[in-house]
Amino acid sequence: MENDNDFNPQQSLALIESMINKAKDRFNENGHLYLLWGWTVLLCSITHFVFLKFDVMKEPGRIWMLTWLTVAYQMVVLSKRKKEERIKTYTDEIRGYVWLAFVAMMFIMIFLMAKNELWDRTYSMFLVLYGMPTFLSGVLLRFRPLKIGGLICWLLAIVSAYVSNDNQLLLLALAVIAAWITPGYLLRAKYKSETV
């Protein structure tokens, strides 16, 4: 680009518009973490349900310990992503804080439930919480499948009021398919098509 001062107001505005679009239109969500967590929760919820129904294990809930492995892997992915990041947008920052708020709320809720031994309706609460970051990420990324996924989580949370605790595990599986796995694959496809 030349460093030329001889350009008119129309050219100035056209230049401003094109440069703003170059930064704005970059789509940097490849759906990787949505798929990672989607498949982890799907695997854990279905396995937990099967273990409960067929009385396979004394404490079938232990399957959820798998999520710690996912957390460790996620740390590696996030640190790699941070290293590769060449630009920081306000949207990315807010989205990061939305997910951080979600994690904080999940931990506090699990702590309170463990402390008071109130494990009944745990999954209903999970469904309510899953909806929040999913829906807001959809708004921030302007990506409708995530918004729909968030709404489905909240709908399933209402449905869970009429379902037994064990069967709520199936609602959880359904929720992650709608909120994380399906949008995750769609995000991956969009990312690939826009970065080629």
Partner: peptide, 30 residues
């Protein structure tokens, strides 16, 4: 600001929180 390259840099930076020099170089072809 009334210089093509400086205006391009400012227009890139105005919509983001921060950007690496290499990113700006790539987008402005400078």
């Amino acid at each position: 600001l009334h210089s093509q390259l400086r205006l391009a840099v400012m227009s890139l930076l105005i919509g983001v929180k921060e950007a690496e020099f290499t990113f700006i170089k790539e987008k402005t072809n400078a």
